[in-house]
Design a protein around this nucleic acid. Structure first.
Length: 416
RNA sequence: GGAGGGAUGGCCGAGCGGACGAAGGCGUUAGUCUUGAAAACUAAUGUAUGUAUUCCAUACCGUGGGUUCGAAUCCCACUCCCUCCGCCA
């Protein structure tokens, strides 16, 4: 959520940001709603003060005065009640709209409409020359490492069975990443993957992306699409001391996504599935240092891909392609030989104070509280990393062979 | 799943219809004393909103509703925690 004071203090900034995102929103309507709710609240509070005053006098009034005062107080009580009902209604009308506004876009984010306008920052790594590259599913199915057919029977489309060495690689990757992150000050975490609605609102996934989230209606719980949700909510309603920041967590969890609206996209293999495992970085940060922290998280992602010998490029996501809570976002796209292009494997966002305001996470500075900043980034999205590893290390004979240093990380030299 | 107990400020804990934003203690901060430190003493010490900006008003005692002129305090529902029984990786 944005700071409602923007309406008073920096309406131009708000308008500029919305324009960059290609959104047309009637701000004057919002201003009006905001004014209405404020003035009615003021009126209600004045009446309430009056009511309290009389209430206090009643306690010590003489018997004959009392009856009269009680009468007056009763009618005031009615008035106050109806005024506060109005306040509630006006507040709701304003905040229902206000909460829908996406985060302010960073000055440094490129302006554009779709992912085609994303700005490539750099390309890293050597792309191996592979003649007639096979895709990861062709390779892994033949080697008995992935079964999507049977998974479709059991669970539906976009699910998979992973077998054998691929599973061993997954656990090696996760363990390796958690160790690396732990060394960099991230606290390894296994968070809950079922959360209440509140956590999803707090992180900005609700109301906008509600259709992407699996529900457990019997228990009013939701399956998270990323451990970002329980990690962010971990500090909700807390005031953190500034000298302890940044506080960093590395969360491992299974992630669940409905992938509504992606029918026909990436239907082959495990690139886009309903369930995958991921190690996620999350940082609670001093607002003055979130830009550096963002670069730091990106650098960790790059380090991981470099050590995994995956060619990649870094993309600065443009304004039109940015999620609601992000002020700035970098994606890293790995080279996928079978598609002859780069595809997203990690993403890191600076959500500035957008999530923290909803989650009410603050710190103290010079005696005043301030909303802190939160950031998140993918360390290892297991499925997609497996794809990149398989495809970039495939051999002509249909096997997969890893370099010595890569084998040391994965615990496996060859898939055959 | 069954039976009982509980939730109050950074922490502990009192209050159980009006003088309560809340006693007392601990902690923290500042000061006095001291070469310095400790101890002792003194003082300060929640959050948010506002047409207030060193003053004032309003809200917040798990959450939401109700009773009442007035609720931390009474009633109802929910959430969470603890103890015992049952079941269970």
């Amino acid at each position: 959520m944005l700071d409602p004071n923007l309406l008073k203090e920096n309406i131009d900034l708000l308008e500029l940001s919305l324009t960059k995102r290609n959104l047309k929103i009637d701000i004057s309507k919002l201003e009006e709603l905001n004014e209405e709710r404020k003035s009615i609240r003021f009126e209600a509070e004045q009446k309430r003060a009056e009511q309290k005053e009389i209430g206090k006098l009643i306690a010590s009034a003489s018997v004959d005065e009392k009856a009269k005062m009680l009468e007056k107080a009763a009618s005031l009580s009615e008035e106050v009640k109806s005024l506060f009902d109005k306040v509630e209604e006006k507040d709701r009308r304003f905040f229902d709209e206000w909460i829908k506004l996406p985060n302010l876009i960073s000055d440094s984010s490129p302006v554009g409409k779709t992912d085609e306008d994303n700005l490539e920052i750099k390309k890293v790594g050597n792309i191996k020359k592979i003649d007639n590259p096979k895709d990861h599913l062709q390779i892994a199915e033949k080697l008995g490492l992935i079964d999507v057919q049977k998974a479709a029977d059991v669970s539906g489309s976009r699910f998979s069975y992973l077998f054998g060495d691929l599973v061993k690689i997954e656990f090696s990757l996760v363990s390796w990443a958690l160790n690396k992150l732990s060394d960099k000050g991230f606290i390894p975490t296994v968070p809950p993957v079922l959360v209440r609605e509140k956590a999803l609102y707090g992180t900005g996934f609700f109301p906008d992306d509600a259709e992407q989230v699996y529900q457990i209606p019997n228990d009013d719980l939701y399956l998270v699409g990323t451990s970002e949700v329980p990690l962010a909510a971990l500090k909700s309603d807390e005031i953190l001391s500034l000298e302890n920041l940044p506080i960093r967590y590395a969360g491992f969890s299974t992630c669940f996504r409905r992938e509504a609206g992606t029918y026909g996209k990436d239907t082959s293999g495990i690139f886009r599935v309903h369930q995958f495992d991921k190690v996620e970085m999350f940082s609670f940060c001093d607002p003055e240092k979130s830009i550096e922290e963002h670069e730091f998280i990106l650098s960790v992602e790059e380090e991981i891909l470099q050590e995994l010998e995956i060619p990649y490029r870094v993309v600065d996501v443009c304004s039109g392609d940015l999620g609601a809570s992000a002020s700035k976002k970098y994606d890293i796209e790995a080279w996928i030989p079978s598609q002859n292009t780069y595809r997203e494997v990690t993403s890191c966002s600076n959500t500035t104070d957008y999530q923290a305001r909803r989650l009410n996470i603050r710190s103290k500075k010079d005696g005043n509280t301030q909303i802190i900043h939160t950031l998140n980034g993918t360390a290892i999205a297991v499925g997609r990393i497996l794809i990149a590893l398989i495809e970039n290390n495939q051999q002509e004979d249909g096997t997969v062979k890893f370099s010595e240093s890569l084998s040391n990380i994965l615990g496996i030299e060859k898939l055959s």
